[in-house]
Design a protein around this nucleic acid. Structure first.
Length: 435
RNA sequence: GGAGGGGUUCCCGAGUGGCCAAAGGGAUCAGACUGUAAAUCUGACGCGCGAGCUUCGGUGGUUCGAAUCCACCCCCCUCCA
């Protein structure tokens, strides 16, 4: 008899490895359990790489378990070496502290802390491993915790192997110790909250099993680990990055519109798997979507559904609505047919926008577009102009990159006397408004 | 502390005195084809519209000319102590 939750997770392809597999199902079935997943502050926001584990916590909570989201105020000061090619730059205490606060708020979006719909004892909790590590002195730590770790075993771990074996790499004692810290987290959460399961990406396997071993040695308790597969793309490129950079969960760093567009551009080869990974739609419904898409010629619906679901999860219904408004306006028809209020709305909805003061604007088009962040170099403007891929309010721009701004932008060509929508290529849009 | 190997443009990686803004691959961007896909083909890919300017761990030097040679320094790796 396997639990419905586990069955669903397996069907979604979300289970990579389970530590303690023989006893795991029975344990999970035995009642409401506490589990945790750690998130280290390596930036001021999480990115979509953390989405799978975040949603996983939620999946467990919906199934009647209690999720703990651990923010690594301590481990973030050290840096996880797992499968990293090189040693990382240490961040200062103040910086990490600031990031911890941001991540706390962010992880909180995905799990419930209170409410009538919650089953008893499943209210989520956010914890910080700095709370139980900063008071421990070195000697105590080395004697009580360090004694349980064998260096021989640690250097065998796949996660640090390339750093140890590869020519040109290397690992500092600081990072090497990371595993011990994370293991200690698990044993502490077990002691304090009876937390019996740690989940994480497949790269966390070594760290998780380390924690399981330590918990058994310190407290004699059996704990479990579950890892999720690394999200990969069919074409082999890295998931979650685009030219414009990482896709962040923070709306201030990646607008809901950009976020929505990211998912909308998912390749056919990946989209059904991503629906299983990143949404709560039932698996058979996803299969149905796939079957429908196959039966129909032309463009699949899956991307649209994926983008809608994930954007709603991360940015809420308002964020989704904003993203859809912009998308509709720009891609569904002639953008120049928009009303003044629509244009105002686009700016508020997160379409990249700049003000343009015709009196004090940069002299050339390529300078203006570079400064607005539309392109990273003037070469791109030159290239795009050559291909007739620059449009201002729907009209292709002719000429050299050095064409004067005043020639392209004038009150006469502006929409409602003050807006210009510049399009570069098929997908890049930027709104300029009169200053 | 000793001996050896290494640090090249986003990444990998060629390049050992001029033909080097630096091969090749990847990533990325734009065009064609499409469905705001994929695959494929084309172009771009240090900065600059351009003349030109700034790069090959750092600083100095040799030379008409240096990523390439010399000196010192910094960092990484391997082995020895």
């Amino acid at each position: 008899m396997s639990s419905a939750l586990l069955q669903d997770l397996r069907a979604r392809g979300l289970v990579f490895q389970i530590a303690g597999e023989e006893a795991f199902e029975a344990w999970l079935e035995g009642g409401s359990r506490t589990l945790y997943c750690g998130f280290d502050p390596t930036a001021d926001s999480l990115h979509i790489g953390s989405l799978v584990p975040l949603l996983m916590l939620r999946r467990f909570q919906l199934a009647g378990h209690r999720p703990l989201a651990l923010v690594g105020g301590a481990t973030g000061l050290i840096g996880d070496p797992s499968f990293k090619a090189a040693e990382r730059q240490l961040n200062t205490l103040e910086v990490v502290e600031g990031w911890v606060d941001k991540l706390k708020a962010q992880v909180s979006q995905f799990i419930d802390f209170e409410g009538e719909h919650l089953q008893d004892g499943t209210a989520a909790l956010v914890v910080n491993n700095l709370d139980w590590t900063q008071g421990v002195d070195v000697l105590t730590f080395l004697r009580d915790v360090g004694k349980h770790f064998s260096i021989n075993a640690m250097i065998q771990k796949e996660s640090v192997k390339q750093r140890i074996e590869r020519e040109g790499a290397g690992i500092s004692f600081t990072e090497f110790t990371y595993m011990i810290l994370q293991s200690y987290d698990f044993s502490e959460l077990y002691r304090q909250y009876d937390c019996g399961l740690q989940i994480g990406g497949s790269d966390q396997w070594g760290n998780i099993t380390g924690g399981i071993d330590l918990t058994r040695r310190l407290h004699g308790g059996q704990t479990f680990g579950l890892t999720m597969p690394l999200v990969t793309k069919a074409d082999g490129t890295k998931f979650g990055k685009t030219e414009s950079g990482t896709i962040w969960l923070d709306a201030g760093k990646t607008s809901p519109y950009a976020f929505y567009q990211f998912w909308l551009n998912t390749a056919d080869a990946d989209v059904y798997q991503f629906l299983r990974y990143f949404t709560f739609l039932p698996v058979d419904q996803i299969d149905q979507i796939e079957a429908d898409d196959k039966a129909r010629e032309g463009r699949p619906e899956a991307q649209r559904i994926l983008a809608k679901e994930v954007t709603a999860l991360v940015h809420g219904v308002d964020g989704l609505a904003a993203a859809q408004r912009i998308t509709e306006a720009l891609f569904a028809g002639d953008a120049s047919g928009l009303g003044a209020a629509d244009l105002e709305q686009l700016a508020q909805d997160g379409l990249p926008t700049s003000t343009l003061d015709l009196g004090h604007a940069p002299p050339t088009l390529s300078q203006l577009l570079s400064e607005s962040g539309m392109v990273s170099s003037g070469k791109q403007v030159k290239d795009a102009l050559k291909n007739k891929a620059v449009f201002i309010n729907g009209h292709a721009v002719e000429g050299e990159p050095s064409v004067a701004v005043s020639e392209c932008f004038s009150r006469a060509t502006a929409l409602y006397d003050r807006y210009w929508i510049v399009r570069l290529g098929k997908k890049k849009y930027h709104l300029f408004t009169v200053a």
